[in-house]
Amino acid sequence: MSIIEIKNLTKSFLQGNNKINILNELNLVVPLASKIGIVGQSGSGKSTFLSLMSGLDKPDHGQILVNNNDITKMSEEALTEFRAKNLSIVFQQYHLVAHLTALENVMLPLEILDHNLSKKSIKDKAIELLNEVGLEKRLSHFPSQLSGGESQRVAIARALITTPKVILADEPSGNLDLETGTRVMNLFMTIIDKYQITTLLVTHNPELASLCQSVYKLNHGKFEKIK
């Protein structure tokens, strides 16, 4: 059973007077609870692909069906709501809200989501996730007081709190040193396996991609299955 279906996805940019097709008639089917790695050289269109997947950008044409909903047809507002319920993003630059503590950063997406959860249960869930990423002692620390690895772990916990159907991860270890990156990614994969969340991992690191069930290489705007 698939959760994501990509049909003829095309995206181009203008470079001077030249039109460059960064993604060219892409097709992909992502099964539920699978982990897909997308690799490619710098400028191959990995991040553009992820932006389109998350609805942060619009394609020239083509369809992205997430849970049978075509997100390319959605308005900004509808997309926002859809994202809240179905998608989470883990960014390379962590993107934590500077004036919120680690705990508050994790709680935020669930608080934003319409739900009937009590404040206490949201907090408990956030603490549980932060425990899981090994930050139980850093709950009340602000992003400026956390290291890169810790910040990314907070971002991972934040991505998980809404129990999304899909996690989109954009070079999550890109800003970390090799050792920390590996540790964080192992943790990330373990948690994803535990929660059975479909994951699209974009990376330039083939070793990291190899942790996924399937790996696609983005080359000249087309997918090339390498695993």
């Binding site: 998350s54 942060l56 900004e76 507002e77 926002t80 709501e81 859809f82 994202r83 809240a84 319920k85 989470s88 993003i89 993107h95 809200v97 935020l108 997406p109 934003i112 989501l113 934040r158 809404t162």
Partner: peptide, 16 residues
Amino acid sequence: TWELNFLKIIGAKFNS
């Protein structure tokens, strides 16, 4: 700008 945009990304309703 970043903060508001980020709220949008993580799914906050526009009215919110």
